[in-house]
């Protein structure tokens, strides 16, 4: 719905003013954004699927020149769970890694010390929820049929059994031929408040062609990260014109951007044939 909203607005405006289809766009030459002090960003992940903990520490950069984010080195990064504490060494500048067998159903605590300031966060790694099936069918979606007559488009459907008596939060990642769909609108999230403990089928609006290899990664995440991703999508998609955007809600203590996620996941792949 979120994605379709901006689209809907523009369609409405277009439909309202068919004789003005050239609604005007113009580059604003003298437009400037405020310069602000760079802020520390911690992107910390820990997965039972990859058995890896990865922490990337950077700083914010100029909005008008994206892609240049200074790396933060010499941080002390430790990860604790149950009675274990491990240290993540800096393998590349600003990137701290450790391979380890991370148990599910466990609370993880991360601690990052930068210039004697300590930032901590906790994340609960839920037990993996398995995908029970992945299938596909020819899409009857009319718009695509009209735009590309004669070509067949497929949609893919995943199924899983939502566990009883608990609230679950999920994120789904979709990959086509080894390329991850990775725009803000590809952050597919759901909780189970509407369908607790049931077999759930999900057929997202992604279209594939014959011979495509489709992979669904089904991540089980905790509530704080569900909120983080929800607010992340808003921060990425909001233009500020029709709503008031804000920074994503972090689970770190201290004034820092980013978040710490501990997650489990399951994947299924399928090749589409005629």
């Amino acid at each position: 719905m979120k994605h379709s909203k901006i689209y809907t607005i523009s369609i409405l405006i277009l439909a309202l003013l068919p004789f003005l289809l050239t609604n005007c766009e113009e580059v604003m030459k003298d437009f400037e954004l405020k310069k602000t002090q760079a802020q520390i960003v911690i992107d910390a992940q820990c997965s039972s699927f990859t058995n890896t903990a990865i922490v990337k520490i950077t700083k914010t950069g100029d909005y008008m020149n994206p892609g240049e984010y200074p790396k933060v080195s010499d941080a002390i990064v430790t990860l604790s769970f149950n009675d274990t504490t491990i240290v993540l060494p800096e393998e590349f500048p600003g990137e701290y890694y450790k391979y380890h067998n991370f148990p599910e159903n466990t609370l993880y605590t991360i601690s990052v010390t930068i210039d004697s300031k300590v930032y901590t966060a906790q994340s609960f790694m839920p037990k993996k929820v398995e995908l029970t099936n992945l299938s596909y069918r020819v899409s009857e979606y009319s718009s695509y049929m009209q735009t590309y007559p004669g070509e067949l488009f497929y949609v893919s459907k995943m199924e899983f059994l939502d566990p009883q008596n608990e609230t679950n939060y999920y994120r789904i990642k979709i990959t086509k031929n080894d390329t991850l769909f990775k725009s803000a609108n590809d952050i597919l999230l759901t909780d189970d408040i509407y369908f607790n403990s049931d077999t759930i089928e999900y057929e997202p609006f992604y279209f594939f062609k014959t011979n495509d290899r489709v992979t669904f990664e089904f991540m089980s995440i905790d509530k704080a990260n569900y909120l983080y991703y929800t607010t992340l999508v808003q921060a990425m998609t909001s233009t500020g014109n029709f709503s008031v955007p804000d920074n994503p809600t972090s689970n770190f203590t201290g004034k820092v951007l980013g978040r710490f996620i501990a997650y489990s996941s399951d994947t299924l792949s399928i090749r589409i044939s005629e």
Binding site: K34, D43, Y63, P66, L180, V244, P245, G258
Partner: peptide, 18 residues
């Protein structure tokens, strides 16, 4: 109006900083 005053990277995403 609220515009970003910077940006940063999380996972593979570029995120606005407000």
């Amino acid at each position: 109006i609220t515009f970003p005053s910077g940006s940063y990277e999380i996972e593979e995403f570029t995120v606005n900083y407000y």
